[in-house]
């Protein structure tokens, strides 16, 4: 489970050596868009030696590889041998690229006796928004992440803080993810200095059903974590409801004037689970 995932350019030693101190639930070490073509080898080697020698790694390590149809991906995937990578982030995820990646991974996993590596699909093409339910069913997939920059560029539209242009893609990702017990992760907010815009963007995504958001600068993490965490009020409510349920030992009862039944109890359990995981209690 995540609330926040921070992108760290793979070729930036200053960011790498501090990756574990940022309050991000996961760090995405990027070998793709933030790394120039002639520095791909530098980034790959740096991330590799970092993962192999660093004592305190981030809570979860995600590696964004280059597209599977590029000649870079084979070398990128050699980093799996470090056995420190929790998830792969697949750029331009679609039915074909996911199929190809799955095949390559199976081969590697067999060869080096690695348990199956979970994949986060980066949805940044119109056709993958359409095919989203098929991607979501794939057993390798753990989460679906929206990549709005490429998507809006393909659509030739502008991104706005109101985010109406993302309503469709966000909703499809959320429905596909939730119905398959995956985590829907929202696109980053790219205007780093605009904290008010970030707050609005996070709330828009949260209210539609997004469960986490990517960050492109550490200064965005505090806001993202706060908005995607259950509130103290919600935690107190959930604790009280569950306590009452235990006391009464009943599936349905009244609490503070409201009817409590199974779906509400499930919601309360989820809140407590998250609160414990994110150390909010």
């Amino acid at each position: 489970m995540f609330r926040s995932l921070l992108f760290v350019p793979g070729n930036n030693p200053s960011m790498l050596q501090n990756a574990d101190i940022f309050m991000s639930d996961a760090i995405i070490f990027d070998l793709e868009d933030s790394v120039n073509l002639d520095e791909k080898d530098n980034a790959r080697n740096l991330v590799e030696t970092y993962l192999l020698t660093t004592k305190e790694l981030p809570k979860a390590v995600v590696l964004r590889i280059n597209p599977v149809n590029s000649d870079l991906v084979d070398d990128d995937l050699k980093l799996l041998q470090t056995r420190k990578i929790d998830y792969l982030l697949l750029p331009k995820a679609n039915k074909i690229s996911l199929f190809v990646l799955d095949k390559i991974l199976k081969k590697i996993e067999n060869k080096i006796e690695l348990k199956p590596t979970k994949v986060i699909c980066l949805i940044e093409e119109t056709k993958s928004v359409i095919d989203i339910y098929e991607l979501a069913k794939h057993e390798r997939v753990e989460a679906l992440m929206l990549g709005a920059e490429d998507l809006t560029s393909e659509l030739e539209i502008n991104r706005t803080t109101e985010g109406k242009e993302l309503l469709y893609s966000r909703s499809r990702i959320i429905y596909a993810a939730i119905s398959n017990k995956l985590i829907p992760i929202d696109t980053p907010f790219t205007d780093i200095d605009n904290q008010d815009g970030l707050i609005q963007d996070c709330k828009n995504a949260l209210n539609l059903g997004m469960k986490a958001k990517t960050a492109i600068h550490p200064s965005q993490l505090e806001t993202i974590n706060e908005i995607f965490s259950p509130s103290q009020k919600a935690i107190k409510w959930a604790e009280a409801v569950l306590k009452k349920a235990k006391e009464l030992n009943k599936g349905a009862f009244q609490f503070e004037g409201k009817m409590i039944d199974r779906p509400v109890l499930e919601k309360a359990k989820k809140i407590i689970e998250k609160a414990k995981l994110f150390e909010l209690m």
Binding site: Q17, D41, N42, N45, L46, E48, Y50, L52, T53, T54
Partner: peptide
Amino acid sequence: GALDYTIRARLKVAIKR
């Protein structure tokens, strides 16, 4: 002010090149 692993990584790449 690079850490050891950075120095090693950079040297490895230079060698590969």
